[in-house]
Design a protein around this nucleic acid. Structure first.
Lengths: 350, 350
DNA sequence: TCCAGAAAATGGAACGTTCCATTTATTTCT
DNA sequence: AGAAATAAATGGAACGTTCCATTTTCTGGA
């Protein structure tokens, strides 16, 4: 098997210079487009480059001028479509700006998170976008204070960290969907899913309780049920809610995946979701649309948040002395079938 | 606002050396763990490192020894959960091996793909895993022949490219699910979704037609319907199939997302999927489980494929003269509700 | 106590770029 | 044609590390 593998050692700027009969400085000039070189020479150099299969060595270049055009993106859970969409948003604006993203998945492990962020900094990332793993401590991110690698925290805010932040309006969104249920006539409403140590849950619960209070509705502490923010978590939390002597007529869930688990639990007990009980989610992942009945939820525009995060980080990279800022994105109600708004409308009309 | 930002310029190995009262060579020794240094000195050096907030400069190091511990991962469609899962698999084995992934999403754009791969090579990626965008030409990947950056092509094979390959067994999987329909008594079976220019569709269609032929079943060319491999594509292709004078009783879809579109189209015409018509998919994405009725499909273990791809690439990086190899992963039938196997069983029993 | 050998530490060249200070070539003006 | 001005090209130091060849320091045995 005659495997062609001629140019074993990598070809450098100097090889190009020799081939084109100029000095390495001239080659550098055309590479960076900085000086002025005769177009004829430039052409000769380009020809030499692809004749020899030259590939630019950014590592070497960065050694001198250190603007690496790379940005780290650290995600806590890539298997959640929400974060995949967020990543797409980030990626698209980075790519547009000539940056490339170093992307990593921590799977909610803070040790992996630490490893990965170190690696990124070692590789010269110009900035890092972090969707923090559960239980990330502010101290772990202390380097962001001092270092010249700007940090942007996204989706889960991190109190006590000197970093720009991009999150959806969890509180307003949650209040909005709660009011929706209230308007449909519900009074006994449960809040399920998520652990109380999670800031995101705190924010969302705040919206829930605020809306309840504003409507003069008491919250039964027994209807505030924690669980892992997963489908299984939603399933068991809903089971607990339904086992109550005085069961709720509606439940607002921490997020879509919890809501889907909750729907399964309700269906298992013979309840028709959207008629016998109202269930709603948060995030508007694509699953929310496909599940049956389709899930009423809060849309937070994951892609848009990603784009915004990237833009804000880029801004801080080019202008390192700008202060850290916070962006809070919209959270809009999308009404589908799982809360029975349609049923309700029919009934009101008839 | 008193923003602390003392050590503006980055601290180097030499600063550490000074602080610890040794030479830079000694610091390098402890960094790489290569030579033998007194544990007392090592400790002193470590202390100096985190006192000064040192971060290792891999770019500089690679300049000398060029094993960069970075691998590129180029995905054609991150919004498809299948690829997100694949990425998770890749990432996990890379991370285990001390590598970090440079991940990028091409969104099926071959120009973005070219850009991104160039960037990765410029940044010194030791190898690249590519899930090629639609219409990727073999010539674009010519560098893989010559260069010292091994390439691994995944999910969509690329005829004529000198690269290792990891794909699921599309043909066998497709044959398997077709036989399932045949066993349920279907004879008029359509194949819908995907464009005929896609190798993956060719492979899957081959399995379909093989199984049909083996059962002595003719394929009506009118029942081979192309579409974009998206939900909308599936929707319209199914619409076309159902508009036929002699409509099929079962349809095998290019993949899950096409199948979900097809289910929507069938439901819209008042057909109950799984009773009036059988529909099946390919991939076993998480949506397949959640959709209603749950989708019968072919599971290809995206995470496993990713792990395998990463392992194979790593193998080629450490052993560059090993020949390119191909791995074909399993494709297993998972029976749910959308093909009416349950109905069928009841009927047979009763 | 001295020496051999091992252990520990060091200096300096190299890696592939950039960029400053120069030199060399080309144009323009009188 | 010659000088002045501009354009084009160059040499070499620097960036932060590694690693080879050395030198220095330590250890234990006679």
């Amino acid at each position: 098997m005659p495997r062609r593998r001629e140019a074993r050692d990598k070809v450098t700027i100097i090889d190009i210079a020799d081939a084109a009969g100029v000095s390495k400085s001239t080659v550098s000039l055309v590479l960076t487009g900085r000086g002025s070189v005769k177009s004829e020479t430039r052409e000769r150099i380009h020809k030499a480059m692809d004749a020899l299969g030259y590939v630019y060595n950014r590592g070497a270049a960065n050694l001198r001028n250190s603007d690496s055009k790379i940005v780290g993106l650290v995600l806590n859970d890539l298997s959640n479509p929400f974060f995949a969409e967020f990543a797409i948003g980030v990626e698209s604006v980075l790519q547009m700006a000539g940056y490339v993203a170093f992307m990593a998945n921590t799977a909610e492990s803070i040790v992996r998170q630490a490893q990965v962020m170190r690696m990124m900094r070692e590789h010269g990332a110009g900035g890092i976008i972090l969707c923090p793993a559960l239980d990330t401590a502010a101290e772990e991110l202390a380097w962001a204070d001092t270092a010249d690698t700007p940090l942007l925290v996204a989706i889960r805010r991190l109190p006590g960290v000197a970093a720009s932040t991009v999150i959806p309006d969890n509180t307003a969104g949650s209040a909005r969907i709660t009011r929706h249920l209230l308007n449909l006539g519900h009074k006994r409403i449960a809040y399920i899913g998520g652990m109380h140590s999670m800031v995101v849950r705190q924010d969302r619960f705040l919206g829930f309780s605020g809306a309840m209070a504003a409507a003069g509705n008491a919250i039964d502490p027994g209807l505030n049920i924690e669980s892992m923010p997963t489908r299984d978590g939603g399933f068991s939390a809903m089971g607990a809610a339904l086992a109550l002597p005085d069961r709720p007529t509606a439940v607002v869930c921490y997020n879509d995946v919890v809501a889907i688990g909750a729907m399964l639990a309700a269906a298992k007990r013979g309840l028709v979701v959207g008629r016998d009980i109202a269930i709603c989610g948060f995030d508007d992942t694509s699953e929310a649309r496909h599940v049956s009945p389709a899930l009423t939820t809060i849309a937070v525009d994951a892609v848009g948040l990603g784009e915004r995060a990237a833009a804000m980080l880029l801004e801080r990279i080019t202008n390192p002395d700008a202060p850290a800022t916070t962006h809070i994105g919209p959270a809009d109600l999308v009404i589908r079938e799982s809360c029975g708004a349609y049923h309700h409308a029919l009934q009101a009309a008839g």
